[in-house]
Nucleic acid binder design. Structure first.
Length: 803
RNA sequence: GCGGGUGUGGUGAAAUUGGCAGACACGCAAGAUUUAGGUUCUUGUGCUGUAAGGCGUGCAGGUUCAAGUCCUGUCACCCGCACCA
């Protein structure tokens, strides 16, 4: 028989589906294991070769767990709301629902052709009203708990999508999706108070098993800093509060800077003599996009407020106040005290505006030439009662003093900002809120959920920045659920991140109409045991979903404080030229072509063999052949099978070692070396000219998570066991059989390998040494020399140091 | 600037606590079989040298009997954040 993947793969896929062997069991007595991959956005391009890297990896884990006796949940669904679908719909005048349906069908058939052991009976879709009913429900709970609020604010506005973007969606000042310019625009937006969870989002990272780089990146993004707030009074008797991480340098503050948007400017407009100049600067700053504002970062600009000064609370000194766009309104208090001697940005500004620079921390070079910013070594000077203290001690002391006098307090700040949650778009979950002239924002009653997306004639966003839903007057005009007065529905929709912030919960109980999932299902399946996904989601999806989950934990909907016990991350698959795959670069590989030509098993083996799972790897069409050959060599083993059940003695050691290696490597994502070990084993088997039935059974079981179709085929053709190999038991190894009786050790002279000898494993130092010295090569090298030292590492080497 | 990562043959890459650098695979070369070609099999394949030997994990030092691995310095590239006070 010849190995024909086109024939066997669809057969086994159908048999698996018919037998439902990958369905998670209800009410199972087995221990549970929940493996999760990031559900795909069903784009029009179809599956990318990057998708199977993650899916196959956790498929291997899921298949191994089933064979180890676990009740495994490995689900799949569609993150189907989103802009590309909507844009395609607009362009081609098709309803986004139809586009989604088509794309999902294509993705599904592509995934099924890969033989991933998903439980298709639990398939979900975020655009399904039965699903987004609960997305809306969660939003209402957030609203009721004061964590969803509406706010007039400057937002990121994509000029092409005509839509608000979250900070996370703006990359280098342009829209992450369409690369168009993003400008700032003041609009009323729904916000989610993720900042209320900032502290726990950091501290609870201790509860989970994530890679350090993921934890570091999340911490960095949340950006916790400790310092103090200090109240400065002004010559007009107003108060200006600043935030600083260096309260110890307060005596060195020689001016203040507030952001151009700071509200005190309006308050002081009658006092400020150069208001025209101030207004001009404010307008210029407002016109700048975030991008421009950071592009020209190094050149400081600003305007001094003429007619008002601030008073330093520790020494009563009057200092000028500037406005400058290097101070951000969105962080801290939107105002800073400037200490040019010890802050590089303040130093630049002071030099440009010829402001005094007073040294208050000694230890650096001349502060007139360069700011001294090191906190670890300096000693305080020119600072009254702080003189002589270290920076650390001075911080404590000044905060103490400020607190006593009521002029300041310790303060923690975060870079993380609240989540801009509304989008002026059609293809998203409607926000279930009614705006009533008397009652304000009123939640749609839960009994009326889902609030379905109405059909509209045109999905184009409007030029004034309103959602296409605003044109649907029949839908928009409604009654206030509270007082019955005429009211209007909220017309903004939720961002794509909404549906993906809780989808893993829905898989636990996907058809429930009474709750997002039953408490029993949540208790049994929570938390996700192993979640694999891309690094690009670390500060978006992963953070958002941790936030939602923590909120659901607080209101006692879910049983665990963290959603994912373990997170791992795959590297990208790059084009053959080492660049990111993209249409414009012409280096895209279509997974369908690979599956057709080489088969799903070869595709799976190749993607796992390609390199370190966590690092990026360039595609290499040549290497696929090696994996295909391996698959064929495995299939051909059937042709040299004998009917013995035992493992032959000469292969016993290598079999046990390989079982151990493959078992261990899967747990630590070393799929490449697991496959290498299997290749090596098959080479050893071929070297003997035959394979016993017992040996082939073990080999087939070991390879089955990687190449399941061909494994099933060999399992059934050679009658290796009952039913499916996918239901067989994972092989065990015997530690004592992993150790060889005779081993080769290396003999070094002065650290250089000169000889190799075979010794029994239990040999002692003297025995090994005398054996080593009896070799002709070694004899010649140490002859007539003084032996200074002899090192023996059992099982490894001997090193003779001779002079 | 801050945080994280990478650097090893012609190529993708391996390498428990420091202990044989290059497993496994691709490619290449020679041979065998079959053939029209491919497939399959065997052998070889880090560089250098006829050989013995010498050299070799970005670069420069250091520790050690022994360093890809530890320490100090340095270069290059990649990813994330970035006027966050």
């Amino acid at each position: 028989m010849k190995y024909e993947h086109q024939k066997i793969e669809p057969v086994w896929q159908k048999k698996w589906e018919d037998a439902g062997i990958f369905h998670a069991e209800e009410n199972s007595a087995k221990p549970k294991y929940y493996t999760l991959i990031e559900f795909p956005y069903p784009s029009g391009q179809g599956l990318h070769v990057g998708h199977p890297r993650s899916y196959t990896a956790l498929d291997i884990v899921a298949r191994k767990r089933r064979m180890q006796g676990y009740n495994v949940l490995y689900p799949i669904g569609w993150d189907a709301f989103g802009l590309p679908t909507e844009n395609f719909a607009i362009k081609n005048h098709i309803h986004p629902r139809e586009v989604t349906k088509k794309n999902v069908a294509r993705f599904k058939s592509q995934l099924q052709a890969l033989g991933i052991s998903f439980d298709w009976s639990r398939e979900i879709n975020t655009t399904d009203p039965g699903y987004y009913k609960w997305t809306q429900w969660i939003f209402l709970q957030l609203f009721k708990h004061g964590l969803a609020y509406k706010k007039e604010m400057a937002v990121n506005w994509c000029t092409s999508c005509k839509c608000v973007l979250a900070n996370e969606e703006v990359v280098n000042g342009v829209c992450e999706r369409c690369n168009s310019e993003v400008i700032r625009k003041v609009k009323s937006q729904w916000m989610l108070k993720i900042t209320a969870y900032a502290e726990r989002l950091i501290s609870d990272l201790d509860l989970v098993n994530y890679p350090d780089r993921v934890k570091a990146q999340q911490k960095n993004w949340i950006g916790r800093s400790t310092g103090a707030e200090v109240d400065f009074t002004t010559t007009t008797d107003d108060t200006l509060t600043v935030y600083t991480t260096r309260p110890d340098t307060l005596f060195g503050a020689t001016y203040m800077v507030i952001s151009p948007e700071h509200p005190i400017i309006e308050k002081l407009s009658s006092v400020i003599k150069n208001m025209d100049e101030v207004r001009t600067y404010q307008e210029a700053a407002a016109r700048k996009s975030d991008f421009e504002r950071t592009e020209v970062a190094k050149d400081k600009t600003g305007v001094r407020l003429d007619g008002v000064e601030a008073i330093n609370p520790v020494n009563g000194r009057q200092i000028p106040i500037f406005i400058s766009d290097y101070v951000l309104v969105s962080y801290g208090t939107g105002a800073i005290m400037a200490v040019p001697a010890h802050d590089t940005r303040d130093w630049d500004f002071a030099k440009k505006f010829q402001l005094p620079i007073i040294e208050v921390v000694k230890g650096g070079e001349d502060v007139q030439k360069e700011a001294f910013t090191d906190c670890a070594t300096g000693v305080l000077v020119n600072s009254d009662y702080l003189d002589g203290l270290s920076v650390e001690d001075a911080k404590k002391k000044i905060i103490e003093k400020l607190t006593e006098s009521g002029k300041g307090r310790a303060k923690v700040n975060y870079k993380l900002r609240d989540w801009v949650f509304s989008r002026q778009r059609y293809w998203g979950e409607p926000i279930p809120i009614v705006h009533c002239p008397c009652c304000g924002a009123v939640p749609v009653p839960e009994s009326e959920l889902p609030l379905e997306l109405p059909d509209v004639e045109s999905y184009e966003p409007t030029d004034n920045g309103e959602s296409p839903l605003a044109k649907m007057t029949d839908w928009v005009n409604t009654k206030c659920p509270k007082c019955g007065a005429d009211a209007k529905r909220e017309t903004d929709t939720m961002p794509q991140w909404a549906g993906s912030s809780w989808y893993f919960l829905r898989y636990m109980d996907p058809h429930n109409n009474e709750a997002l999932a039953s408490p029993e299902a949540l208790n049994y399946w929570s938390p996700v045991d192993w979640y694999n996904g891309g690094m690009e989601h670390t500060t978006l999806h992963l953070l958002y979903s941790r936030f939602w989950h923590k909120f659901l934990y607080d209101i006692k909907v879910v049983p665990t404080p963290e959603p994912y016990a373990k997170r791992t991350s795959h590297g990208m698959i790059l084009g053959e030229n080492g660049e990111k795959m993209s249409k414009s670069r012409g280096n895209v590989v279509n997974p369908d072509d690979i599956v057709n030509e080489y088969g799903a098993d070869t595709m799976r083996l190749f993607e796992m063999f390609i390199g370190d799972f966590e690092n990026a790897a360039p595609w290499n069409s040549n290497s696929i052949k090696g994996c295909r050959r391996f698959a064929e060599r495995f299939y051909n083993l059937g042709g040299i099978m004998t009917n013995e059940e035992n493992i032959r003695p000469e292969l016993e050691g290598v079999f046990h070692k390989t079982i151990k290696k493959v078992s261990d490597d899967i747990e630590v994502l070393k799929f490449n070396t697991a496959i290498a070990a299997l290749m090596s084993l098959i080479n050893d088997i071929y070297a003997t000219g035959s394979v016993t039935k017992g040996e082939l059974r073990i080999f087939t079981t070991l390879i089955s998570p990687f190449a399941p179709h061909i494994a099933e085929q060999v399992w059934s053709e050679k009658a290796l066991g009952d039913g499916f190999v996918s239901r067989a038991q994972w092989p065990e190894y015997d530690e004592s059989k992993c150790v060889d009786e005779e081993i080769q050790i290396v003999v070094q002279v002065n650290g250089k390998v000169r000889d190799k000898i075979n010794v029994p494993v239990e040999i002692d130092k003297d025995g090994a040494l005398s054996l080593a010295k009896s070799g002709e090569k070694i004899k010649a090298l140490i002859d007539g020399k003084n032996i200074v030292k002899e090192i023996y590492v059992p099982g490894k080497l001997i090193n003779i140091v001779a002079k």
